[in-house]
Design a protein around this nucleic acid. Structure first.
Lengths: 198, 198
DNA sequence: GCTCTAAACTAACATACGTTTGTTTTCTCA
DNA sequence: TGAGAAAACAAACGTATGTTAGTTTAGAGC
């Protein structure tokens, strides 16, 4: 046998990305093997190489695609928010949580498989991550400058907030006790006002 | 050659654990190989098996030891704190952050290598993690009951707080811009009051 | 309808890995 | 001081893995 009736390059490539996200998310990049990936797609191991350069290249593509989307959607969310600082900040937080609820796998991989990337690839993804962090840092600095926000260190606060907001993708399961909107609102409130009663 | 002059079982076992923590933290469990581990200790690969059962068993031991220590130290910190709820809560948060600053490697591994454990081992570690989460959940429920704290959902708030507080071990480097005490205080304030100016 | 390319197949290669085996030397303690 | 246990070595085994090579068939454009 050789080329299969009805086979289609784009469709197969998409299936590979989808299966790879699932497997990397479940087992980690190093523990995922290309034979299992190929089986998940329904093709032979060697056939993967019609669609990917290397295993490493596949990971990099997945991460880069995710970071590009995240940055673009974040900027769109910020532009759509009201002009007041507090509204843009709420917009950022809400978008971050929602995005992380909806794309657990991509987010988890982008956050925890950085060490699996070759140094040049890692540097590229890291730069995009920094650009994302800078969006939040800029908002926090603006809030401190105008007096709406108060914190002892902007950068570390930003890291702490991002860690908290990203945490959802480690435990969220669709169809759980809380709906997405509730989870989003909870995180917005928690970040802005903490847990102490006012 | 065979047994080395001055060799010592306990010392070697400790060196293995130390090297394993470093390597698993750096590369991940699946990507760490026993030849590199042995080289880090200064023995031959096969000699590892005088001290470990299997690679999997080594990971489980590291995690179990860490979780046991974390639970014990947490209870000690809670007992040492003042009787008021807010003081015990501050104590929990401060201890958590400090512990995570001081034992980045163990914490990182215990949090992100759960999927590398065999199901029975994973269940054991997961139970200990739940016990830890329950410490915080109990504090939050007490605070809500007495009216000091306010949140829309205790369990999800606990998850969010733990994610935030655990985040330090992904970026902290000893000797950085901020000292440990400052980082601890920042997280206590952030968790309790958020970033909005009162 | 013919040709070129796309996309799959089968088969294998080279290496890396966890682990086992058998042996040797050092340490401990009765 | 001598026997057993501890702790290392050297060497290998079996398998899994990423990747490549060569081949074959289906689809697309002239």
């Amino acid at each position: 046998m050789a080329r299969i009736t009805g086979s289609n390059g784009e469709r197969t490539a998409a299936a590979i990305r989808r299966a790879a996200l699932r497997l990397i998310h479940r087992h980690g990049f190093a523990a995922m093997n290309l034979r299992e990936l190929a089986a998940g797609v329904g093709i032979q191991p060697g056939s993967l190489y019609n669609h990917i350069t290397t295993k490493q290249g596949l990971l990099f593509d997945l991460m880069q695609e995710h970071m590009t989307t995240l940055l673009a959607e974040t900027d769109a969310a910020l532009a759509a928010a009201g002009p007041a600082l507090i509204d843009r900040l709420r917009g950022f937080i809400a978008h971050h949580v929602l995005y992380h609820l909806e794309r657990k796998q991509e987010v988890y991989i982008a956050n925890f498989e950085l060490r699996a990337l070759d140094p040049p690839n890692a540097a590229c993804i890291l730069a995009m991550r920094r650009a994302y962090e800078d969006r939040l840092i800029a908002l926090l600095e603006e809030g401190v400058a105008e007096g709406t926000l108060a914190m002892s260190d902007v950068r570390v606060t930003a890291y702490a907030m991002l860690a908290m907001l990203t945490g959802v993708c480690t435990w969220y399961r669709p169809g759980g006790r809380l709906g997405r909107a509730e989870i989003v609102a909870l995180h917005v409130d928690l970040a802005l006002d903490g847990i102490r009663r006012r």
